[in-house]
Computed example of a mutant assay.
Amino acid sequence: MTNRVNNSHIKKDCPTPIYMQVVDYLRENIASGAWEQASKIPSEVELMSTLGVSRGSIKKAISRLVDEGLLEQIQGKGTYVKSKDISFPLTEGLISFSESLIEQGLSFETSILDCEIRKSDEDISRHLGIVEGSDYLHLERVRSVEGEPVMFIENNINMALVPGIETADFVNEGLFAIIERLSGHQIEYSKTSFVAKLADTQRADALGLSTQSPLLQQLQTVYLDNDSAIEYARVWLKSSRFQLGTVFQRRH
């Protein structure tokens, strides 16, 4: 293949290194939206032909943008524009994932996988503060952000505190809003932890991942303003899409 310079993109007499000119070309295509988030960019061979530069310059430029978080390489598939991380700030108080997505201006959809009344076992009873064998609502949902499934949500709800919740519209109304409307109480606080997990078959299939893919799991018990436990949630987050952040104040 002849590496003929395309003067509209690459100038060999320019003091800027060739690979940095390739970086600028790639970055411009991403910033302009010519290459959309999660889309595959042209192959190295195609870029060599378009720009008239060596494979080494292409590889170096792509590596630079991978390090910057603009591109990601998937073995056996190619190079893709990396989707924007979904932020979940931990310093903004207790908000739901749907409320956080709305604040970020991200479009999302919720799919219901399961919604049924179950009898509580020892684990659920302990988290919800109910007698073992009590009725509770078990809810499983997948939330997709801009068309990509990014979280598998399992909610276990103390039905005695929210009469009628089994008929609520969990697709079009947020769970926290439903709870506050039906219970007549405000959600006050939660006890929350995060742990690293590997995707089992159910979570992997729902999120479009391979089994054993890394996930971030949120475990959360939510309490009303009268200190009653209303919900125990297990949420599996696609770790490649989420960024958790907080601010630490220096002790004096």
Rank of each mutant, 00 (worst) to 15 (best):
S107C: 04
N155Q: 13
V142N: 02
N172S: 14
L101V: 04
E103S: 14
S43L: 03
F108W: 02
S63P: 06
I130T: 10
G78E: 07
I112V: 13
D67S: 13
I74A: 03
M48V: 05
G147W: 01
K84W: 07
L90A: 06
E166T: 09
S96T: 10
P163L: 12
E140N: 02
L70Q: 11
Q104Y: 05
E99Y: 05
R141V: 00
K119A: 10
C115S: 12
G93E: 09
P42D: 06
R143Y: 02
R141G: 00
L90Q: 13
E68C: 08
V45A: 14
G129Y: 08
V45M: 05
E68N: 11
V171N: 13
D169S: 03
I86Q: 04
S111K: 12
R126W: 11
T79H: 06
T79Q: 04
G69A: 01
V171Y: 14
S49Q: 12
P163V: 06
K82N: 02
Q104M: 01
Q104I: 07
L71Y: 05
R126S: 15
P42F: 00
A61Q: 01
E99L: 05
N156Y: 09
M151A: 11
Q104R: 05
V142A: 04
L106Q: 09
S100Y: 06
D135A: 11
N155L: 07
S39Q: 07
M151P: 00
V145R: 01
K60S: 15
